[in-house]
Design a binder for these strands. Structure first.
Length: 948
RNA sequence: GCGGGUGUGGCGAAAUUGGUAGACGCGCUAGACUUAGGAUCUAGUGCUGUGAGGCUUGGGGGUUCGAGUCCCUCCACCCGCACCA
């Protein structure tokens, strides 16, 4: 009974490659199904056991779909541009192209070992000029179009120019950075540069001076989603706001469609919520407040609660609001400027800090409804980059305004009567209006509508929807990215490259330091930067998300030289049916791809508006961090480690200085409650960390030096944590596969629990799956390695368990519950072993249903069963429900819902017969104790319940 | 603070529409075979009780003949956003 998985894996890996088993072509006779994994960034560290979780899940599903008659596109590629390769180049001098290629080779070997059914003929790499030609091409599309807000679609910029020539900016319905009115005459007398600058207001890819997230340590700007808590997501370096001329993408034009487009998608709710929050829609109104005694200035505010306007008793501007210097009274100037300066310096990390700090500007605004003068303040709690950077403060129904008013002794008008809603707080949409003239007595939501109508009718304000979403910064001062297909003429005006001149290839370079003025390393290659007199190329490159925003389309037709993909290919494959990947891309990649896809959809390049119909976020595989405990006090000058069991017994928490992570290879019973170091472990540890050579190790039996350590065990502390080099707890899939085989590795990863859940890698549990595979094998081969499958008729009961398993497997795979299908396989194999079943009529379909999970072993057994075509090309078995229908059924017999007995009856007995027979049961008689039966509930084939 | 999610044995977890809670695996206990076992096989294993039985899906309450599942309420943990007007 030898299961030699290494031989089997090598054999089939070779055959599958030679026969191009997973190669797929457009085939109109079959329905298509597109299963996509988020392609990896090929990092130097290689894969750990966590990475393939999603790949294995999508692979099982792909194989199942293929066997179910679908033409499955299941490709893989590499997100090959990126910062780490360039940082690595800076450190070592190895060219990013080389290190990236090396890493890709390594990834490929690891992926192949797992037995994933990718069609490698379709591989894409974002750093391949044949690929990024089209990334550049899409960038130019964005550059050449603007967003028409009335038609809700992208439109060629030429149409806008035609409009400007005839009508100027009048009646233009376009998403823009700022609204600058001009006439047709104005337009026609502008210089080319001026016109170009004006168009930049509208283009979907545009250049502007603005504050950007500048990371000094990385020497580049970052997009909003690449910054977390004021530091760079990669590396954790500080990020500051810096003014720079940068390319941006007008994703804000698509805010509403990005929001509403999610409704029809099969994504999990938390992911949708993350995107909704990021887009941050709020509906309300712009209202203008005139500045008192000042005919020129008025303050535009945004509010979602126009109903509370009668409660506005003062106004607040952001300290850096443009109007502040214009309205501040002379006697307040000094203090206001000082305050503004102070708050500017603390902008970096102000999250969560509630503050009531602020200052009066000396100016008043005129309340637009009451006509009263209300003071204008500046305060930290109003942000320049949200809404208009100014608010009307309603201390009667806003906690921050209230706190501010209390602090600064400003009047508070109670405008909401919440006496009917004792649990509601400020800002809740519960209660009725009071002290608000014509709104009095109205519930909040009605009052909002009434006030909006009033404001618009009297031209005091307009309805408006605001979004938190900002335009996406698209420039990086980096070498290892896509060059912009743009140069600048003598006047600095951008000129786009012709499609024929694409791709604009990255030049060779061997020094990757940024140029001294903060520009990308490309600026140091004069010959590249200035290909001819009067022309200067853009030296920035595109960010990491450029190449990954459309790669799923390239897989449809990866070698096409004339289009990013042919119409035929796109029309056949349409969109991604199933996308599997990590939640960490919720606001970055997934948002940008959807945006690009919608632009391509508007321009009729793709047939669907959304790229990813169904999305599954696989959880993370966590590691167990094993550490040993070091005492704070040294023992006669020696380091002193304590076994974790005595540490908890003696409650030594306060005296332990730190837990030193130990390499998991040294730990016995790794990952278990009684994990510990033995003598060998201690010796390996001090060899690894020589500074602890002299240390003392205290166990229950006393205190020992490493050399004195005998049979005792130093118990380690185990915690669930990230699997990371830092904790020395990385489990490499190659090692697991070498020991247990790829099939076992795949099944175990799935058996661990639901795909969407994170869970620690438990080394011991894999034995169960390993045992299962050996048992499965033993149905086909005996201990002498002889083939024992027969052509006999199946034994009584075998077909029932087989078909139950087919049914369960089908249903479970469809709902991505792979752990439960594996449980069913285990039950099935155990049953068949008990029945001593060796009939090919049972064992042949069994191979097929297990094939998506254990492709190697299944293929080997399938061949041994006499098949000449791969099991992965066969049809997934259909279950036959006649085998599953019971003719007897065991009913639980309950008294008042509690099971007291059971009774086995023929399936088609009448309810009356069931009741009579159940009543006759001795247990029932005993429990009824002659009490009258109030009611009898019989649910056929389920249960019988007597109510007394 | 707001939004989303999750709470079931010693552990990972099952449970279809409200119908025998804890399938399957790990671990543990006992036994068999063994020179040996960290191999294999068999049996047992939610808690409690000698037993009949009683209790049990984060806590409390409700609807129901019957609730892990539905409703109300509280608690804990995880994730996202966070002075968002």
């Amino acid at each position: 009974m030898k299961l030699d998985y290494q031989r089997i894996e090598a054999k089939w890996r070779k055959t599958w490659t030679e026969t191009q088993l997973y190669r797929v072509n457009e085939d109109l006779s079959k329905p298509k199904y597109y299963v996509l994994d988020m392609f990896p960034y090929p990092s130097g560290a290689g894969l750990h056991v966590g990475h393939p979780l999603g790949y294995v899940a999508s692979d099982i599903f792909s194989r199942y779909k293929r066997m179910s008659g679908f033409n499955v596109l299941h490709p893989m590629g590499y997100d090959a541009f990126g910062l780490p390769a360039e940082q690595y180049a800076l450190d070592t001098g190895v060219h990013p192209a080389k290190s990236t290629s090396d890493n890709i080779t390594r990834y490929r070997t690891q992926l192949d070992n797992i037995g994933l059914s990718f069609d490698w003929s379709r591989q894409v790499r974002t750093d391949d000029p044949k690929y990024y030609k089209w990334t550049q091409w899409i960038f130019l599309l964005l550059y050449q179009h603007y967003y028409d807000t009335s038609k809700q679609t992208a439109v060629p910029i030429a149409d806008l120019i035609a409009h400007f020539e005839k009508f100027g900016s009048e009646n233009v319905t376009a998403a823009s950075s700022q609204h600058v009115p001009f006439t047709a005459e104005n337009w026609n007398t502008m210089t080319a540069e001026e016109q170009n600058a004006m168009l930049m207001n509208y283009r979907l890819a545009y250049r502007k001076v603005g504050y950007v997230n500048w990371c000094e340590a990385l020497g580049t700007v970052l997009a909003n989603d690449e910054v977390k808590d004021g530091v760079s997501e990669r590396g954790g370096f500080p990020v500051v706001q810096k003014e720079m001329l940068q390319w941006s993408l007008r994703i804000t034009a698509y805010a509403e469609r990005l929001l509403s487009g999610m409704d029809g998608l099969q994504w999990n709710e938390s992911l949708k919520t993350i995107q909704r929050n990021w887009i941050g829609k709020s509906e309300g109104a712009f209202v203008d407040f005139r500045v008192a005694d000042n005919l020129e200035q008025s303050i535009k505010i945004f509010t979602t609660r126009p109903d509370t306007i009668y409660g506005a008793t003062f106004m607040v501007l952001a300290p850096d609001h443009d109007l502040v210097p214009l309205i501040t009274s002379d006697d307040r100037k000094k203090e206001v400027e000082a305050f503004a300066e102070k708050s500017k310096n603390k902008t970096t990390n102000r999250t969560g800090v509630k503050t009531t700090e602020g200052m009066w500007t000396g100016a008043y605004a005129v309340h637009p409804l009451s006509g009263e003068n209300i003071p204008i303040y500046i305060a930290d709690y109003v942000l320049k980059d949200y809404g208009t950077g100014a608010i009307m403060a309603v201390p009667g129904d806003d906690e921050r305004d209230n706190a501010f008013a209390t602090q600064h002794n400003l009047p508070i008008v109670e405008i909401i009567d919440r006496s009917e809603y004792p649990n509601a707080g400020m800002g809740d949409h519960e209660g009725v209006l009071q002290n608000s003239i014509f709104l009095n007595g109205l519930p909040i939501d009605e009052a909002i509508q009434k006030m909006l109508d009033y404001l618009e009718k009297n031209k005091l304000g307009i309805r408006q929807t605001e979004y938190k979403l900002r335009d996406a910064n698209f420039s990086r001062q980096r070498y290892w990215g896509e060059p912009f297909p743009v140069y600048y003429d003598q006047n600095g005006m951008p000129v786009e490259l012709n499609q024929n001149d694409l791709p604009l290839e990255l030049p060779e370079l061997d020094d990757f330091k940024p140029s001294p003025d903060g520009r990308s390393p490309l600026a140091r290659i004069d010959t590249w930067m200035k290909p001819q007199a009067g022309i200067e190329r853009e030296t920035d490159t595109m960010p990491g998300y450029a190449g990954s925003s459309w790669y799923f389309l390239r897989y449809m037709d990866p070698d096409n030289q004339n289009e990013f993909a042919s119409k035929e290919a796109i029309n056949y494959w349409q969109d991604v049916d199933l996308y599997v990947g990590g939640i960490e891309h919720a606001v970055g990649h997934l948002m940008y791809s959807r945006f690009w896809h919608k632009v391509l959809y508007d321009l009729n390049f793709v047939p669907t508006e959304e790229p990813f119909k169904k999305l599954i976020n696989q959880g993370m595989i966590q590691g167990i961090v094993e550490s040993i405990l070091l005492m704070k006090e040294r023992d006669n000058g020696y380091y002193h480690f304590v076994s974790a069991d005595i540490a908890s017994e003696r409650k030594l928490d306060d005296t332990i200085v730190s837990a030193i992570p130990v390499h998991i290879d040294f730990v016995s019973d790794y990952g278990h409650p009684d994990s510990h170091l033995t003598k060998e472990g201690i010796e390996a540890f001090i060899k690894w960390r020589p500074e602890y050579t002299e240390a003392l190790f205290e166990t229950k039996n006393g205190v020992f030096t490493a050399s004195q350590f005998g049979e005792e065990q130093l118990v380690t502390k185990s915690e669930v944590g990230k699997m990371s080099k830092r904790y020395h707890n990385v489990v490499n899939p190659d090692d697991v596969i070498a020991r247990y085989g790829a099939d076992c590795f795949r099944m175990y990863e799935m058996f661990l629990g639901p795909i969407e859940q994170s869970k620690p890698w438990d080394t011991m549990g894999i034995e169960g799956v390993s045992k299962f595979l050996k048992k499965l094998w033993s149905l086909y081969y005996n201990e002498q390695d002889e083939w024992i499958v027969t052509n006999d008729e199946p034994k009584e009961g075998s077909l029932k368990i087989l078909h139950a398993s087919i049914k369960k497997a089908t249903e479970d795979i469809e709902r991505f519950s792979f752990n439960t299908s594996i449980s069913q396989f285990m039950i099935c194999v155990n049953e068949l072993r008990k029945l001593d079943e060796h009939s090919s009529q049972v064992l042949s379909p069994l191979v097929q249903i297990i094939a998506p999970f254990a492709p190697y072993i299944a293929e080997e057994l399938w061949e041994a069963l006499g098949n000449t075509i791969s099991v992965h090309k066969s049809s997934f078995p259909q279950f036959d429900k006649t085998y599953l229908v019971e003719n007897v059924f065991t009913y639980p017999v309950c008294i008042n819902g509690k099971k007291r007995s059971e009774i086995t009856l023929l399936k088609d007995v009448t309810n009356q017969q069931i009741e009579e027979q159940a009543k006759a049961l001795p247990e029932v008689i005993k429990w009824l104790e002659d009490k009258p039966i109030k009611k009898v509930i019989i649910i056929p084939e389920k249960m019988i319940n007597f109510v007394i």
